[in-house]
């Protein structure tokens, strides 16, 4: 299902990707070239550098390792960890574990979607928030839980979740106003 949703317009992205600096990924490939089965590790490190996996990086990896781009793309889309789109400044990970589900995580998701006007897997047009779900964050006793940039919040209610997001929004718009004043 997630196979197609992640990368909607590859041609549009590749225009932007053309200006990317590929030297860090070349360095990783050089280090790992002789290790058997290192493709996933290379992709993981590349994502750490760029925050996502731009198409040009995938093509570069394929070219350098001498494998088909389709294979690299196939692996990048198989595993949920890999993203083909940049994420927002604030990455919201909503836990979808069983404990969170029975404690109402779906209501929280629909409320957040309504608040940010995006769906799961999308980023707000201002690039501030992206919403993703995690199979289980492993903090089941705090259910329902969400994580924003590594910081866990729980137990949540729909209002609490919205309040947290609005607080971040307010802080962001303040810093924006402050920046303009200078």
């Amino acid at each position: 299902m997630h196979f197609c949703s992640k990368n909607k317009r590859p041609e549009e992205k590749s225009m932007l990707d053309a200006q990317l600096d590929l030297s860090p990924v070349l360095k990783i490939i050089e280090e790992k070239r002789h290790e058997k089965g290192s493709l996933i590790a290379i992709l993981q490190q590349a994502q750490e550098i760029y925050g996502y996996l731009p198409l040009s990086v995938l093509k570069c990896i394929a070219r350098e390792l001498g494998i088909k781009p389709a294979k690299v793309y196939g692996i990048a889309t198989f595993y949920t960890q890999f993203r083909l789109q940049p994420t927002g400044k604030y990455q919201i990970m909503l836990c979808q574990g069983t404990a969170c589900h029975v404690n109402g995580s779906e209501r929280i998701e629909s409320t957040i979607c309504q608040e940010l006007k995006i769906k799961r897997g999308e980023t707000t047009p201002d690039g501030l928030f992206s919403l993703e779900s995690a199979a289980c964050l492993g903090c089941c006793s705090l259910a329902p839980v969400m994580m924003i940039n590594g910081q866990a919040y729980g137990p949540l209610s729909a209002e609490k979740a919205v309040a947290i997001i609005r607080k971040i929004k307010a802080a962001e718009s303040l810093s924006l106003v402050g920046g303009e004043a200078q």
Partner: peptide, 10 residues
């Protein structure tokens, strides 16, 4: 450990 709702191994 991929089961949602399980965190023993972690």
């Amino acid at each position: 450990e991929g089961d949602p709702g399980a965190f023993m191994d972690r």
